[in-house]
Simulated assay, not measured.
Amino acid sequence: MADNAPAFSICVYCGSRPGEDAAYTQAATAVGEWIGAHGGQLVYGGGRSGLMGTVAEATRRAGGRVVGIIPQALVDKELANRACDELHIVQTMHERKAMMAERSDAFIALPGGIGTFEELFEVWTWRQLGYHDKPLGLLNVAGYYDGLLAFLNHSVASGFMGEWQMGLLHAGTDTPTLLQTLVEQAGHNASQIPLRSVI
C-alpha cells in the first residue's frame, strides 16, 4: 500500500436531509471524523446537503479522502459536492451503486429515507447471494431504526428470512465500535492504524 493510500474505504448510506433530531447530524459527524482520524476513505452519494454533506465534510476535515458518486440527474437536486477528492458523475443509479460497492471495503447505513433503505437492502441482498463478502452495518441513531429492526426480526419469525441472513447485518448504536467491527471484518486492523488529530 502506498504511503498516501487510504487505510480502508467505507461506503456510507445516509439522508440528503438532516432529519429532525440533532443526534442524526452528530452521528454523521462522528462517522466522518472516525473515518478521517483512522486514515480512511469515505465513499458516498456525492451530495453536499443533509447528512451526506455532513459526513463528507467531517471526513475531509479529519484528514480522510472523500469519493462522491452521483447521477447527472441528481447533480443539481442533491447539490453535488465539488470539494470531494474524487467526484464521479454517472448516468444512472445502477452505475452509482455499482461504483460505490466496487470502491468500498465495507458498508454502513445511517438514518435516511427511501434511497438509504434501498441502497442498504440491495447491498445486503448481494451479500446473501454471494456477489460480495463485504461487511454491512446499520447505525441505529436515537432509536431511528428500532421499528425496522423489529420488522426484520418479525420477518425471521414468520419464516421469510433466516437467522443467518440477519447475522450478515451488524446493527449497533455505538459509532466507534460498529465502525471498528466493520473495518476489521473487512480485513484491516483499525486498532493498529495511527490516529490523526481532527482539525
Rank of each mutant, 00 (worst) to 15 (best):
Asn4Tyr: 11
Asn4Leu: 09
Asn4His: 14
Ala5Phe: 13
Ala5Trp: 02
Ala7Lys: 15
Phe8Leu: 06
Phe8Trp: 09
Phe8Pro: 02
Tyr13Pro: 09
Tyr13His: 11
Ser16Glu: 07
Ser16Ala: 15
Asp21Cys: 12
Ala23Trp: 13
Thr25Met: 07
Gln26Ser: 12
Ala27Phe: 10
Thr29Gln: 02
Thr29Val: 09
Gly32Lys: 00
Gly32Ile: 13
Glu33Gln: 15
Glu33Lys: 06
Trp34Ser: 00
Trp34Tyr: 15
Gly39Met: 03
Leu42Asn: 01
Val43Met: 12
Val43Thr: 13
Val43Cys: 14
Tyr44Ala: 05
Tyr44Trp: 11
Gly45Asp: 03
Gly46Arg: 08
Arg48Gly: 05
Arg48His: 15
Arg48Pro: 06
Ser49Thr: 13
Ala56Glu: 02
Glu57Tyr: 01
Ala58Trp: 01
Ala58Thr: 07
Thr59Asp: 03
Arg60Tyr: 03
Arg61Cys: 03
Ala62His: 07
Ala62Met: 05
Val66Asp: 03
Val67Arg: 01
Lys77Leu: 13
Ala80Ser: 06
Ala80Gly: 10
Ala80Asn: 08
Asn81Ser: 04
Ala83Thr: 12
Ala83Phe: 04
Asp85Gly: 10
Glu86Cys: 09
His88Gly: 04
Gln91Ser: 15
Gln91Val: 09
Met93Arg: 02
Lys97Gln: 07
Lys97Pro: 06
Ala98Pro: 02
Met99Gly: 10
Met100Asp: 08
Ala101Gly: 13
Phe107His: 09
Phe107Glu: 14
Ile108Arg: 00
Gly112Thr: 05
Gly113Ile: 05
Ile114Trp: 01
Phe117Arg: 01
Phe117Asn: 07
Glu119Gln: 06
Phe121Glu: 11
Glu122Pro: 01
Thr125Val: 13
Gln128Val: 05
Leu129Cys: 14
Gly130Asp: 13
Tyr131Met: 10
His132Val: 07
His132Tyr: 08
Gly137Asp: 13
Leu138Arg: 00
Asn140Ala: 06
Val141Ser: 00
Gly143Leu: 03
Asp146Ile: 00
Asp146Pro: 10
Gly147Met: 11
Gly147Arg: 00
Gly147Trp: 07
Leu148Pro: 05
Leu148Gln: 04
Ala150Gln: 14
Ala150Lys: 00
Ser155Met: 15
Ser155Leu: 10
Val156Glu: 15
Ala157Asp: 14
Ala157Gln: 06
Ala157Trp: 03
Ser158Asn: 12
Gly159Gln: 07
Met161Ile: 05
Glu163Arg: 15
Glu163Thr: 11
Glu163Asn: 11
Met166Trp: 07
Met166Pro: 01
Gly172Arg: 02
Asp174Ser: 10
Thr177Leu: 15
Leu178Glu: 02
Leu178Pro: 04
Thr181Cys: 12
Thr181Gly: 00
Val183Glu: 04
Glu184Val: 14
Gly187Asn: 11
Gly187Arg: 08
Ala190Tyr: 02
Pro194Cys: 06
Val198Lys: 10
Ile199Ser: 12
Ile199Thr: 12
Ile199Ala: 10
